[in-house]
Computed example of a mutant assay.
Amino acid sequence: MTNHLYMRFIRLPILARILMIAAVMIFLFGSLIHYIEPKSFPTIFDGVWWAIITASTVGYGDFYPVSVAGRVTGMILLLVGTGFLSSYFIHLSAATVNKQNAYSEGRVGFKGNGHIIIIGWNERSRTILRSLIKTESLILVDDTLGSNPIKDDNVHFIRGRANKDETLLNAGISTAKKVIITSDQNLDELQADMNTILTLLAIKGLNPDIRCIAEIQTSEQINNARRAGADELIPTNALTSAVLLNSISSPEVVSPLLDLLGELNGKHLSYIEAEASLINKDFPEASSFLQRERKIILIGIKRGDNVIVSPLNNIKIKYDDQLLAISND
């Protein structure tokens, strides 16, 4: 039985062990001084109070021993008890510093829920973090950073490879609401896409229901990324090429496009279903109705695989159409 208790004591954290030894020692010396000098220390509580004040070297002077035996007890307490209390506070300070360092270096797992996981550190992820930092709880996952690059309580850093289960579990993948995977710019395009696909497989294996938005660079890997579980893909190179081509034919296209993207901050550009009240209405009429009733700006119509932006007046909205619109919802 004694050996069992000893083994349980040994397994306790060192802070807990030092605190327990110090507390027992304070109580013993407080009780001892009460029995040695009952007049100077009327109760055990008075003795314990004196032992704490003496061991901590504060020394209020409200209680003090007057006999030789009492003073010898106080000397032993100072020699032994002070060491344990000092060790406790030293270890407590060291543990606090180590915990803070571990948190900054990405070695502490996240325990919350409803957060957004952003994988990869680059200019795109920096912009995303800066945009969402006020409204969302964010987890940054990266294996190249030595510490958290953004010092904010809403950004928790996890260091590690995002295609490893341990890293994803530390990032709280099971309780997250969304994952954004940015392409690794340190790899060539094919390797970066393969790394993205491997990360998608790892994420969906741990949480099949989580929404994944992934950046992809090569068009050849788009289908593989969808098979791996991407809910939405951002073809970076295709978007860049489209902007460059349009800038050649329309020299002023870049600034308006950037202005439009800036205005979309906080709004939603998405496809909405054509409700019954819009069926058989022409585009301008439907646009006026949505703007007046629901504060939605109608841009175009998706009919099958074709997207028609600002269609002609003679095109009427059909039941299976999807409407490309900007809304505040």
Rank of each mutant, 00 (worst) to 15 (best):
Ile53Asp: 14
Val48Glu: 00
Pro38Val: 08
Leu77His: 06
His115Cys: 13
Met75Ile: 13
Gly61Phe: 00
Phe41Arg: 00
Ala69Met: 12
Asn98Gln: 11
Val97Trp: 02
Ala102Trp: 04
Ser40Gln: 13
Glu37Ala: 01
Ile76Asn: 02
Lys39Pro: 02
Tyr103Phe: 13
Arg71Gly: 02
Gly109His: 04
Leu79Ile: 07
Thr57Asp: 04
Val97Arg: 01
Thr57Gln: 05
Ser67Pro: 08
Phe41Ser: 01
His115Asn: 10
Thr54Val: 00
Ile119Arg: 04
Val80Thr: 09
Leu92Gln: 10
Gln100Asp: 08
Thr43Trp: 04
Ala69Asn: 09
Ile119Asp: 07
His91Asn: 12
Thr43Leu: 05
Thr96His: 12
Tyr35His: 13
Lys111Ile: 07
Trp50Thr: 00
Met75Gln: 08
Gly109Met: 02
His91Tyr: 14
Arg71Ala: 05
Val66Asn: 03
Val97Lys: 05
His34Glu: 06
Phe84Ile: 12
Gln100Tyr: 06
Val80Cys: 01
Gly70Asp: 03
Thr57Met: 11
Val72Gln: 11
Thr73Met: 07
Gly109Arg: 04
Ala102Arg: 13
Asn98Ser: 11
Gly70Ile: 11
Ser67Gln: 09
Val108Tyr: 04
Phe63His: 15
Ser40Tyr: 00
Thr73Lys: 03
Asn113Pro: 01
Val108Asp: 03
Lys39Met: 11
Asn122His: 06
Tyr35Val: 14
Gly83Glu: 08
Ser86Cys: 10
Ile53Pro: 04
Gly61Ala: 02
Leu78His: 14
Gly106Gln: 14
Asn122Thr: 05
Glu105Asp: 14
Asn122Phe: 10
Tyr64Gln: 05
Gly74Val: 14
Ser40Thr: 03
Ser67Tyr: 05
Gly120Phe: 04
Gly70Leu: 07
Leu92Lys: 07
Ile44Pro: 01
His115Asp: 08
Ile53Tyr: 07
Val66Gln: 02
Ser104Asn: 15
Gly81Cys: 12
Asn122Val: 03
Ala94Pro: 02
Val80Gln: 01
Tyr60Leu: 13
Tyr88Val: 06
Gly47Glu: 07
Gly74Leu: 12
Gly112Lys: 00
Ile117Gly: 14
Leu77Lys: 10
Asn113Thr: 10
Thr82Pro: 03
Phe110Leu: 11
Ser86Phe: 15
